[in-house]
Every structure is written in structure tokens, then in C-alpha cells.
């Protein structure tokens, strides 16, 4: 079996795990709806209607983050609960290829899980029937790449589910509140601004906002690629480390 075929089989397995429970996808969409139609809509009422559109993509990116973290959780469960890790490592695929396939599978899952949300945001931004819709999915995929990497890195070190959940919450906090989802970078104290400017969420949001203003997404996406690839590599390295144990 060729490497490419093996990679596609691993990705297929991960996506199938997601679809083994369609209820889960429904719940994630419900999560997105609460974020968008409760939180964002309320802040729209409190601050102004244009503010709703400004923060709307944040709801979808937060859903992408939740979906991406499910991949790390699955890997954690394979190791600690289902005792599947040893079996998976006996498959006729090199560990490096296997690790990269798991990350790609996580990205695919995240894009699938946020598919309806991305369409809703694209509708709100008036690009649903435009070729720019593809860019919206690219933004979600690149953003998810980094988060999947982070979640896999956490799963390699978390010994209990509480630890995993707590670290996940801390990362969610960093991505949500120390980014430009809700406010402009200039509002932050000068000392925090570098943290905000290196946050992948900041650049994913910036890319989505360019879609709304009919600007080019090339610059924000090219910056987003940096932390995303770095986190993905970190995830792959941690996965390889943990498979050695």
C-alpha cells in the first residue's frame, strides 16, 4: 500500500469517528448558534449592529477550536481509556506519516464540523454564492491546523481528563480573550499587544473581516500560517514522543 493511500485511510478513519456520532456534529452547531445568536447578538444590541457582524466569525472559529480539540481528546482516549494506541502503532505505516495523517484528519474533521457555521458566516458577509467562499474554508482549515496540533500536544502530556479539559480551557481563553475577536489590538495595554498579535485567532479573524470588506485575505492568511504550522509541528513532535513511550 502506498504512503498516500495509507494517509488517506488514516484520515478516513478519523473523519468516520466524527460521523459515527452525527449527534455530536449537531451539538457543535448548536454551540455555534448560541455563540452567534446569543452572545454576539447581545453584544450587537449593547454596542451596535455593526459590532455583531464584526465578531460573528469568532463564533465559527470557536466551534472550529472545539472540533479540533476533539481530535486530541480522541488520541488521549485511545491511549488511556481504550488502550488502542499500541494496536494503532503496529499498523504498516511509519510513525511520522501516521502523526501527520492524524493532524490532517483532525483538520478535515474540524472543517466538516464547522461546515454549516462557515456557510452561515459567509451568508452574513454576502459571499455565500461567490468564489470567495473557498477562502472562508481555507481560513478555517489553516486555523484548525494549529489547534489540532496544540490539542495533540496536550493529549500527549495530560494524564487525566481533568488535566486535558483544564489545559483546553486555558488555551480557549487565550484564543478568545487575548485576540481581536471582541476588540481592536490598540485597546490592549502595550505589554499584552505582542501576545495578541501572535495569536492565530487574531489573524483568522482579520482574514474573515477582509472577506466582509471585500479586501485581500492573502496577508492575514500568510501570517496565520506561521503559528498554525508551528503548533502543528509541535503536535507531531509530541505525538512521536508519546509513541516512543
Amino acid at each position: 500500500m502506498s504512503s498516500i493511500h495509507l494517509i488517506s485511510r488514516v484520515i478516513e478513519r478519523d473523519v468516520k469517528i466524527l460521523f459515527s456520532d452525527t449527534f455530536l456534529i449537531g451539538i457543535m452547531f448548536a454551540n455555534f448558534c448560541i455563540d452567534l445568536f446569543v452572545t454576539a447578538a447581545t453584544f450587537g444590541n449593547l454596542i451596535g449592529s455593526s459590532y455583531f457582524l464584526r465578531i460573528a466569525p469568532g463564533s465559527n472559529l470557536i466551534t472550529a477550536m472545539v472540533a479540533a480539540f476533539q481530535s486530541g481528546r480522541d488520541i488521549w482516549r485511545e491511549k488511556y481509556i481504550k488502550d488502542l494506541a499500541s494496536y494503532l502503532l503496529t499498523l504498516p505505516v511509519s510513525r511520522r506519516v501516521f502523526a501527520l495523517s492524524r493532524i490532517t484528519g483532525g483538520v478535515a474533521r474540524s472543517v466538516v464540523a464547522t461546515f454549516p457555521g462557515t456557510l452561515v458566516i459567509s451568508y452574513l458577509y454576502g459571499i455565500l454564492f461567490s468564489p470567495r467562499l473557498v477562502e472562508a474554508f481555507v481560513i478555517v482549515a489553516v486555523f484548525s491546523l494549529g489547534i489540532v496540533g496544540l490539542s495533540i500536544a496536550v493529549s500527549a502530556f495530560a494524564s487525566t481528563i481533568e488535566v486535558f479539559a483544564t489545559v483546553r480551557s486555558a488555551i480557549q481563553l487565550y484564543l478568545s480573550f487575548l485576540s481581536t475577536i471582541f476588540y481592536d489590538v490598540s485597546l490592549f495595554p502595550a505589554i499584552v499587544q505582542p501576545i495578541v498579535q501572535t495569536n492565530p485567532m487574531t489573524w483568522a479573524m482579520q482574514a474573515f473581516r477582509e472577506l466582509q470588506s471585500q479586501g485581500s485575505t492573502l496577508y492575514p492568511i500568510s501570517i496565520l500560517v506561521g503559528p498554525s504550522v508551528a503548533f502543528a509541528m509541535l503536535g507531531a513532535l509530541c505525538y512521536l514522543w508519546y509513541t516512543r513511550l
Binding site: I27, N31, F37, V38, T42, N45, Q70
Partner: peptide, 28 residues
């Protein structure tokens, strides 16, 4: 998997669809 997401959703629904963080008049 369901448990994790259901609990997160419930937590979100219970806290967001309330007047804890947002005044009632400004809720949709």
C-alpha cells in the same frame, strides 16, 4: 464524545441564556 460536548453545550446554554452576563433588555 457526546458527554464532553453535551456538557460544554449545557454549560454554555445555562450561563449565556441568562442575565448573569447580559442585562435582560439587551438579550435577543
Amino acid at each position: 464524545n457526546r458527554f464532553d460536548v453535551v456538557l460544554a453545550l449545557l454549560e454554555l446554554a445555562v450561563t449565556r441564556a441568562s442575565t448573569a452576563l447580559y442585562p435582560l433588555n439587551f438579550l435577543p
